[in-house]
Write a protein that binds this DNA or RNA. Structure first.
Length: 592
RNA sequence: GGGGCUGUAGUAGAGUCGGUUACAACGCCGGCCUGUCACGCCGGAGGUCGCGGGUUCGAGUCCCGUCAGCCCCGCCA
């Protein structure tokens, strides 16, 4: 097919520098413009588009062939890089100064008419795009995302290699462990009735590699969690997984923020200021209501419980009396919100369990609000002062238990930041959130569960709390938050077998279960484990922010739908009875 | 498991209060056109209104169910 034709350049890379050269180009037909005589073809490849000019007077044969060419045909063209005639330079194109005067043309492959136009102007429903993903991936938007993803992966490898990390692969067929997300299971043919689990992360293996003395490990690795999908969650996703020996939290954070800074420099040309801000979990919750605050704008939550504890508004006073929280945020210049908008905000906080949203519009005459009448002048003055309220502002209050008040207002703050355009996509605000609680009480299971995971070390000063008030113990954990998104998280691990056993017992995992599930880790810890810690970054979420994508599907070549299916390959599918028999698996009839 | 949005030629949309033959655009096919670049002009083909049921003399439109895609809650150590 190619014969002795050999590609000399990429289409999109040609510039005036190649002027006069004879070139051989290959690519896809973006568009053909047939003027009856002259025919123009925009030829596209990974790098971009260049214009081919076919003149019937110069080469009748090539011109004749060009007449039957259609969109997305794969063609090869030989010709000369030429300056465009006066007045026909296209400043919108990277290659707009030149065109190829074609003297030989070859059709390498014909193409059916594509189901949708492969240009940047046509918007296509996502289910169609996913079914023909290989075509959607030809479009510049996804091409650019995938190319940047490659650049980031390359940068990660270079940086970590420079900093003494070793890339080591860990098993994909591994062991199901309790705690955490639902596992994807793989039946073992050789061991009927037994199952492998796909890893939720290589957590235990990377700790074993520290015990083995590799000092610093990393892997760009697929992880699997069988949970419901979201705009930023896929069942299989990629982590930049790291683990380091003989380090404390500060060392991990400083090595890793160097990595992030390098990524932003290479991918976007953005220089980040280091070190990144640090924020404790308690402070994050107090000021922003959530542990992943968006720091691109202010609008912080203000605690008003003390001010309203004796006020005439029973809803607030009761909550204060019962140990709950009354908090509010000040939407600067928000008094223009319509009744409908306020109703929508009320519906919004109800999603997170709030019973309602009290609002106040600050006018020249003072409070305009359904709840204004319940407060005396002193209380009004104190509230205004606490919130920095000025004429034209909108104050929004939630009163409930601490968890609901913080979450509802925190989410409302993030929502308003988007709605009011305070969250500029090209403004990158990082923070490390530290000192997470080690444990959390699970009301359903009537036991503590690990906030991070069962191998996270407590703060040294909080170790005594494990025996007295384990719920108050803080962890040597850290999350990296970027623009309201958790892009990474990790901790210093327990490297002492006895502390690890104590942790398991706090989690309600008895000795026998601990041996069954984690025996190999406990063994490893007993054979000389170095102090170690690590972190994992969600590469997909990081790519979303770097590319400005609203969906995780836009940074993954072949993503799954919300029902975890692949519209392209039609996975998952039914399998032959014979395959099931070999695996010793029998299907249960699904009851409807 | 739950809440919400969407579904009309290949694509993305319009379609009023339920009323005759479901519109125009892009794409596609044919013709014309030698400087276009989201080329232009003329003509043409193309429809299971997601699917099933119901109400009605009559349903793209109203009702019920269902499927698919998306967003969210729960879930995601």
């Amino acid at each position: 097919m190619l014969g002795n034709w050999k590609r000399s350049h990429l289409c999109g890379a040609l510039t005036a520098a190649e002027m006069g050269e004879d070139v051989c180009l290959m690519g896809w037909v973006q568009r053909r413009r047939d003027h009856g005589g002259l025919i123009f073809i925009d030829l596209r490849d990974r790098e971009g588009v260049v214009q081919l000019a076919l003149d019937p007077d110069r080469d009748p044969l090539a011109h004749k062939k060009a007449e039957q060419i259609r969109n997305e045909f794969v063609i090869a063209a030989r010709g000369k890089v030429s300056p465009r005639p006066e007045g026909t330079i296209n400043p919108k194109m990277k290659t707009g100064e030149v065109e190829i005067e074609v003297n030989e043309l070859k059709i390498l492959n014909r193409a059916e008419t594509p189901p949708f136009m492969l240009d940047e102007h046509t918007e296509v429903a996502e289910n169609i795009r996913l079914k023909y993903r290989f075509l959607d991936l030809r479009r510049p938007a996804l091409q650019n995302n995938m190319l940047m993803r490659h650049l980031v992966a390359k940068t990660v490898r270079n940086y970590l290699d420079d900093n003494g990390f070793v890339e080591i692969e860990t098993p994909v067929l591994t062991k199901s462990t309790p705690e955490g997300a639902r596992d994807y299971l793989v039946p073992s043919r050789v061991n009927p009735g037994n199952f492998y689990a796909l890893p939720q992360s290589p957590q235990l293996f990377k700790q074993l590699l520290m015990v083995s003395g590799f000092d610093r490990y990393f892997q760009i690795v697929k992880c699997f969690r069988d949970e419901d999908l979201r705009a930023d969650r896929q069942p299989e996703f990629t982590q930049i997984d790291c683990e380091l020996s003989f380090v404390d939290r500060e060392t991990v954070m400083s090595v890793m923020e160097g990595l992030i800074a390098k990524i932003f420099q290479e991918a976007l040309g953005v220089e980040l200021t280091l070190p990144m801000p640090r924020l404790t979990y308690a402070e994050a919750l107090n000021r922003f209501g959530v542990d992943n605050p968006d720091l691109r704008f202010d609008m912080e939550l203000v605690s008003l419980t003390e001010i309203v504890k004796d006020c005439g508004f029973k809803v607030f006073a009761d909550v204060a009396d019962k140990g709950g929280l009354v908090k509010a945020l000040n939407v600067k210049s928000g008094a223009t919100f319509s009744r409908k908008e306020l109703d929508d905000l009320t519906d919004f906080v109800k999603i997170y369990g709030a019973k309602g949203l009290a609002w106040v519009k600050m006018t020249e005459e003072g409070w305009q609000s359904p709840i204004a009448k319940f407060f005396n002048d002193d209380e009004l003055a104190a509230l205004n002062q606490a919130l920095g309220a000025e004429v034209g502002d909108l104050l929004l209050f939630v009163a409930d238990n601490a968890r609901i008040t913080n979450e509802a207002l925190g989410r409302l703050r993030a929502h308003l930041g988007q709605k009011l355009g305070l969250a500029d996509k090209e403004n990158y605000q990082f923070a490390w959130v530290t000192d997470f609680p080690l444990l959390e009480w699970d009301d359903e299971a009537k036991r503590h569960v690990a906030v991070h995971h069962p191998f996270t070390a407590p703060l040294e000063e909080d170790i005594p709390l494990l025996d007295t008030e384990p719920g108050k113990a803080r962890a040597q954990a850290y999350d990296l938050v970027l623009n309201g998104s958790e892009v990474g998280g990790g901790s210093i691990r327990i490297h002492d077998q006895s502390v690890q056993s104590r942790m398991f017992s706090l989690l309600g995992i008895d000795d026998q279960e601990a041996r069954e599930k984690f025996g190999f880790l406990l063994d490893a810890l007993s054979f000389g484990a170095p102090p170690h810690g690590g972190i994992a970054f969600g590469l997909d979420r990081l790519m979303m922010i770097l590319t400005g994508a609203d969906s995780i599907r836009d940074v993954i070549a072949f993503p799954k739908t919300q029902k975890a299916t692949c519209l392209l390959s039609e996975a998952p599918n039914e399998v032959d009875e014979k395959q099931l028999q070999e695996l010793g698996v029998r299907l249960r009839r699904q009851s409807k």
